[in-house]
Design a protein around this nucleic acid. Structure first.
Length: 876
RNA sequence: GGGUCAUUAGCUCAGUUGGUUUAGAGCGCUGCCUUGACAGGGCAGAGGUCAUUGGUUCGAAUCCAAUAUGACCCACCA
């Protein structure tokens, strides 16, 4: 059968993915082997594959496949996250297109639509992961709103409530007026925006005097309930105890004093709006101020907004500024750079808002999680620098607002039975709730229909923080076989952007619910950026279509492309050229295989050169394997790939195959052939985690294999004896080869023309490698001589001198120039070494080993100089 | 405002407890080669005052300090 000269990925990829699925290699069940577990960072159900996912999941697949090859019971659990805000927004938008308003349908009807949506689109991203080659255990695919997941969430909520860690509070929270829900502090992104600072003059009550304040939000004056000055500010002492009149609404408000006010900022006078600013709220509580909320839930003004009622806050800002100016209250405006909080999901400007919400007390929960990372190193971060970020957040942690005013998610299991602040119970189901409510209210006649469940759901992260446990049902059945076997998981691969949202909270939950870490190592990937260092995003349109990339370069090519430049924790500048490099590599491997496959095998003696080359490659392979293992142990995946790349491209293809290659249309001896097939198979194993499809394809081409013998479940190579002498000998020989090639190049001597080589072997180098040198450079004979050969081109390796006699004239000047240049360099080098050795303090203080090395360098350089001088003399 | 990290070849990055030839890799670049695995290839080559300035040391890309530039994280100055 003719093998095409170009590797065609698309058919192979589908074929082998189906084969792997059919033979159940991805599926894991507990057995006597050591487990290796990864839980996927569940992408949003609304998501489509982007470059970040590609990188992230390629890394997970590399780790999983390698673990599998190493004989571990590898289990990579896939799944998706219900992403309440994002998904609810999409469903709302879709309903709107169909002419249905969310508030016109019931909660249950809405949820039906949402589930319908999930059924339709929820699997898209997982299907895309298959295209990438991800070897997830699809039988275990989970979703954060699966029944057992939701039950777990409720159970945990009730438990934390009963422990006194969850409480209900009337607090200032981050309100997203577009999604109409609260957000946690972590979901608020601060963006710098150019705005205006308005200076407004308030009339002092009962006088003609005025007081000027500065604000960025003039529309909130309608909610003002005080003006605050710093008691140490002498400019304003005359205002103490007086009252001011708020413009437009003409409310009389007190002038209070507090050191919180910065004397330097603005005019040193602050307007206080307790309903719409966290600091103002604190002031309000301290000074017992009235709280006036002027906004509706969608951030339009309510009746306190007077004639602005019903208008949006930003419209009002413009209009009220105009009115204030017309009425003479506006003193001036200044350009002002301010930080505005926006919603991570909807991008809407966050409104601080007072409302009843559920909070989780973090202070105690955090302690074991902090210790595990920073003290005991039970959990290791790669790269380590993120431990600082983690520490900082954990040590300054605030209570977590876990309630969201949404429908898509786990509904808060609180049941109200009366109108009092305290008239509620928390229970896993309504029957439990009824019993508790009857007890608490002392009213045995209380019935189910009297109970109203809280309308809110919990934050999405309140379900995903349990993910490493709930995917193995470890909350509902804490003693089941899966959780006992797979937990704690081994590696977590994720982005540093969710270190607080998710990573930290999983660690907290792990210690609280299993008294054990959720994972041993966390590998933080970088952010994928484009060549101009811009973050890849939909709005910029700079994110390539993942599936198109796979079409163009093959999944293996894309995987290699992504991994080539992704040191842990460093952002990665993605460039399609890297995928091209990956594709080229795949083709190189393919052709290396094609060459070997095309050879005719005969029972003839093994050439000495082949024997030596194979021994050398074994040594080189062992040496590289040590390197690769070291890289993996430090999660330096891109270095592990590069080491493999060089082994296969340079050592295997460029050197080994060239040395053993039989003459044109001549057969190869069986011994060499068998050895090279074995070597190819070992290489394929190292390559498989990076390039699963291509390697399986070649593996199965080499020989007919039963499913048990598939590459995906082959045995990872063991580290061998690593013979250094062979590697040194080869390195020396390769320098000789390069010298001869350079001469051929310079003098334009075709490879067909055989040359002779003479050598003055001052280095006493072994002649074992002569056969290899001869084969690769078409040297007919190598003779060992004592004296300089006249009329020859020369080159030197260390202090060995090589001669290639030339029939024609030798350009003496050029030869001399070359030698002089070498001489100059070597003398310079010798000088620097001598300078060190002549320094008494160096000789006295440096370790023995270092001095010996310097002496060796000196001797080598001196020998080389002697050789060069002799050659030069012979030319004169 | 506080903090973390970076700065090495045209680009992307290694350089592990200071000493392994006068600093490496991949890509790119420049020449030449090209019927017998692969032009998605081969061979050879050019290219760096290791951000700057001081300091410690026998010895610094590596340790320390300051400066500059950039990135990220945290923080309630209207």
């Amino acid at each position: 059968m003719e093998i095409p000269s170009k590797y065609e990925p698309s058919s192979a990829e589908n074929r082998w993915y189906d084969y792997w699925m059919k033979n159940n290699y991805f599926h894991s069940i507990p057995d006597e082997r050591e487990p290796y577990t990864i839980v996927i960072p569940p992408p949003n159900v609304t998501g489509v594959l982007h470059m970040g996912h590609m990188l992230n999941n390629t890394l997970q697949d590399v780790l999983t496949r390698r673990a599998r090859l190493m004989g571990k019971n590898a289990c990579w659990v896939p799944g998706t996250d219900h992403a309440s805000i994002a998904t609810e927004a999409k469903v709302v938008a879709r309903l709107k297109e169909q002419g249905i308003a969310k508030n016109s349908i019931s909660r249950d009807e809405f949820l039906e639509h949402a589930w319908e949506w999930k059924k339709e689109y929820g699997g898209v991203i997982l299907e895309q992961l298959k295209k990438l080659g991800c070897s997830c255990d699809w039988d275990r695919t989970a979703f954060t709103m699966d029944d057992n997941m939701s039950e777990s969430v409720i159970k945990v909520f009730v438990d934390l409530f009963n422990k006194g860690l969850i409480y209900r509070g009337y607090r200032m929270v981050n309100w997203d007026p577009q999604a109409q829900t609260t957000l946690s502090d972590e979901e608020v992104i601060y963006e710098e925006k150019q705005g205006l600072l308005y200076y407004l003059a308030y009339q002092i009550e009962g006088s003609d005097e005025k007081v000027t304040i500065a604000t960025t939000r003039p529309e909130t004056i309608l909610g003002d309930t005080a003006i605050c000055i710093n008691p140490n500010d002498e400019r304003h002492h005359h205002l103490k105890g007086k009252r001011a009149i708020v413009p437009i609404c003409e409310r009389s408000i007190p002038i209070i004093e507090d050191e919180y006010v910065e004397i330097e900022f603005g005019t040193g006078c602050l307007k206080v709006t307790p309903a719409h600013d966290v600091n103002d709220k604190a002031l309000g509580e301290k000074h017992n101020l009235e709280t006036i909320d002027i906004f509706n839930a969608d951030a339009t003004l309510n009746s306190f907004g007077l004639h602005y009622e019903g208008k949006d806050r930003f419209t009002v800002r413009k209009e009220i500024a105009q009115e204030l100016e017309e009425k003479g209250f506006l003193v001036k405006t200044e350009q002002y750079l301010t930080k505005v909080g926006t919603s991570e999901r909807t991008k809407a400007v966050i409104e601080p808002r007072l409302s009843d919400q559920w909070f989780l007390k973090m202070e105690e929960l955090v302690k074991p999680a902090l210790k595990a990372v920073l003290e005991t190193e039970d959990i290791k971060f790669f790269p380590k620098k993120f431990e600082n970020t983690y520490r900082h957040w954990m040590e300054n942690i605030r209570d977590w607002n876990i309630s969201r005013q949404l429908w898509w998610g786990q509904r808060i299991p609180a049941y109200y039975y009366g109108d009092g602040q305290d008239d509620f119970v928390v229970a896993e189901n309504i029957d439990e709730a009824l019993k508790l409510a009857q007890d608490k209210s002392n009213d045995p006649k209380l019935a189910i229909e009297h109970l109203r469940q809280d309308e809110d759901v919990v934050d999405t992260w309140f379900s995903s923080w349990l993910w490493p446990m709930t995917v193995f049902n470890g909350i509902l059945e804490p003693d089941n076989d899966d959780i006992k076997y797979y937990y704690p998981t081994n590696d977590l691969v994720t982005g540093p952007d969710i270190i607080f949202f998710w990573v930290a909270r999983m660690i907290i939950a792990g210690y609280e619910y299993r008294n054990e870490k959720p994972f041993k190592n966390v590998y933080f990937t970088g952010i994928v950026r484009d060549k101009q260092r811009r973050k890849m995003s939909k709005s910029l349109g700079n994110s390539p279509d993942a599936l198109k990339l796979i079409d163009d370069y093959g999944a293996d090519g894309v995987r290699v492309g992504l991994l080539l430049s992704s040191a842990a924790g460093n952002d990665l500048m993605f460039d399609e050229d890297l995928c091209q490099q990956g594709k080229n590599f795949a083709n190189k491997i393919w052709n290396g295989f094609r060459l070997v496959k095309g050879w005719e095998v005969a029972d003839i003696p093994q050439p000495q050169a082949s024997k030596l080359a194979i021994e050398w490659f074994h040594a080189k392979f062992d040496q590289t394997l040590v390197e690769i293992e070291d890289h993996y142990s430090k999660y330096r995946i891109s270095d592990a790939l590069m080491a493999t790349y060089k082994l296969v491209w340079d050592d295997y293809s460029s050197w080994l195959l060239e040395i053993i290659k039989p003459a044109y249309q001549k057969p190869i001896d069986r011994t060499t052939f068998d050895a090279v097939i074995d070597i190819l198979e070992q290489n394929l194993k190292l390559l498989h985690p990076f390039m699963p499809f291509l390697t399986e394809e070649i593996w199965q081409h080499i020989a007919a294999r039963t499913p048990k013998e598939a590459l995906i479940v082959a045995e990872w190579p063991k580290i061998g004896k690593n013979d250094n002498g062979l590697i040194k000998g080869f390195d020396f020989a390769s320098e000789v080869i390069a010298g001869i090639r350079t001469i051929r190049k310079d003098k334009n001597i075709a490879m067909k023309e055989a040359l002779e080589l003479s050598v003055i072997n001052s280095e006493n180098a072994s002649n074992d490698w002569d056969v290899v040198i001869q084969k690769l450079t078409n040297i007919s004979s190598i003779s060992y001589v004592d004296e300089t050969v006249e009329g020859a081109l020369t080159f030197r390796v260390k202090s060995n001198e090589y001669f290639i006699p030339m029939a024609g004239t030798i350009d003496i000047d050029a030869e001399m120039k070359k030698i002089r240049e070498e001489l100059e360099y070597t003398r310079g080098f010798l000088q620097s070494v001598q300078k060190k050795l002549q320094n008494e303090r160096f000789v006295n203080n440096a370790p023995e080993k270092v001095i010996a090395l310097e002496r060796k360098k000196q001797a080598d350089a001196e020998a080389k100089i002697e050789t060069l001088e002799k050659s030069l003399a012979s030319l004169l």
